[in-house]
Computed example of a mutant assay.
Amino acid sequence: MRMILVGMVMLFAAAADAHNAPSGFAYTRYCCNGDGTSGDCQRIPSKTVRPRAGGYEVTLLPGDHRLATRKHVFLIPQSQALESPDGAYHLCLFPSENRVRCFLAPPMSF
């Protein structure tokens, strides 16, 4: 019985520690704070991202990211963008909706 209980605790701890994108890849621990339901990382619509010289302009409205409660415009240098494993845009906001912790993007092509 004790072994079963220990196994269940380990299973739930591993599941709580993992935060995967909808496509299945795992966000890095540095970027991820939470889980798939309440976490700060998620895929964002491509319409919110505008590539520009030297980086990206990300305009979030409420509904574009679960933490966005008002309009935000973030300027993210290309040097701070991480490559997106699934070719989509992802944004991690931490410790609040006002700060970009990680931005994942497909390779720039302009």
Rank of each mutant, 00 (worst) to 15 (best):
T37M: 15
N98C: 02
C102M: 06
C32I: 03
F110S: 14
G39L: 11
R43N: 13
A13I: 00
K71G: 10
A105W: 00
S79R: 11
I44P: 00
L61C: 10
I44R: 00
L11F: 10
P51R: 04
V100L: 13
V73P: 05
I76T: 01
Y30L: 06
G36K: 13
H65K: 06
R50G: 05
G55N: 03
K71F: 12
N20Y: 07
A105R: 00
Q80L: 15
G55A: 06
P45G: 09
V6H: 04
K71I: 14
A88E: 11
C92P: 05
A88D: 10
A15C: 14
A14C: 14
G39I: 11
L61Y: 12
P85E: 09
P106N: 04
Y27Q: 01
D86F: 06
R99W: 11
A105D: 00
A81L: 10
G34A: 07
R99I: 09
P95V: 09
C31T: 01
I44S: 00
L75A: 11
F12K: 11
H90L: 08
M108S: 13
D17F: 06
V6W: 05
G55Q: 03
A88L: 12
A81Y: 08
M8C: 04
Q42D: 02
Y30K: 03
S79W: 09
L82E: 08
R70Y: 06
P51A: 07
Q78T: 12
A16H: 10
A68I: 08
A21F: 05
A14H: 12
D64M: 06
